[in-house]
């Protein structure tokens, strides 16, 4: 399968601290990859670099063959790569519907004058956005929350809204940064089912940062393990589970364990 996202020799230094060193990735189209690692391993930094929120110190990021290393996040989104955030970044004081409508931005075409004069083409597009939002709300079983203010939703629903919003953006590649953070086990299981479903329905390529091992093991076809900013292991969930280096990274070196 064709590689849709390719990262070569990616480095990021914050002053003297090296957050990411020589990170690489070849993400095939249609796959779900997992990215795991202990706290502070640089997982979120990798996402920030790929999505353009941070600029790398060195390295190259290719998306569909285009070098996006120095693109702005909005340009990267327009090409079809978007993400969610570990520490939820909804539009808190807007309604659920508005949160989703905004996300259609890269596909909305109507011009300034069309909006001013409320031309038929403007209304067609607004209606189209409305239908798109309806579909996503239904898929996420959130239709009842349509008019609710985003920040008033229960936490688990806020996390789902974040993913729903990214889907309205119609990306080809979606980066999920700890989608199940703060959820209980039941909620996380439901979320995994939902993610698998949208993966199939939208033919999405995904990359998931996770802490919950069963969650990511059940979801991803391949897993990368990051420690101190570099990839220490890469393989199928089975291989990762039995990898000595990974066990050490998580639990410490053998003889130190009491």
């Amino acid at each position: 399968m064709a590689t849709i996202l390719k990262v070569e020799g990616l480095w990021k230094n914050f002053g003297g601290l090296t957050a990411v060193s020589d990170y690489f990735l070849e993400l095939p189209e249609g796959e779900i990859y997992g990215l795991i690692g202990p706290n502070g391993a640089g997982k979120t930094t990798v996402f920030n670099l790929i999505s353009g929120v941070l600029k790398p110190s060195k390295g190259r990021i290719l998306f569909q063959g285009i070098d996006i290393t120095w693109f702005r996040p909005d340009q990267i989104a327009a090409l079809g790569l978007t993400r969610t955030f570990q520490n939820l970044r909804l539009f808190p004081s807007l309604t659920v519907e508005m949160n989703l409508r905004i996300a259609y931005h890269t596909h909305a075409r109507s011009g300034f004058l069309a909006a001013l004069l409320s031309t038929p083409s403007f209304f067609r597009e607004e209606k189209e956005i409305g239908q798109k939002v309806d579909r996503i709300l239904e898929l996420f079983e959130m239709s009842d929350f349509r008019e609710e203010i985003a920040s008033s939703l229960p936490y688990g629903w806020q996390r789902k809204l974040d993913i729903a919003r990214a889907l309205v953006c119609e990306p080809q590649v979606l980066l999920l940064d700890e989608p199940s953070a703060g959820m209980n086990t039941k909620e996380a299981e439901d979320l995994a089912v939902l993610i698998r479903r949208i993966h199939e329905e939208f033919r999405l390529t995904m990359m998931v940062v996770e802490h919950r091992m069963p969650f990511v093991m059940g979801l991803a076809s391949r897993i990368q393990v990051l420690d101190y900013g570099s990839v220490i292991a890469f393989g199928t969930p089975e291989e990762i589970r039995n990898n000595q280096k990974v066990i050490e990274a998580y639990l410490g070196v053998g003889d130190l364990i009491a």
Partner: peptide
């Protein structure tokens, strides 16, 4: 509401 979130959704 949130500039970073807006940006990764394509708003310049």
């Amino acid at each position: 509401e949130d500039e970073t979130a807006a940006q990764v959704l394509g708003v310049y």
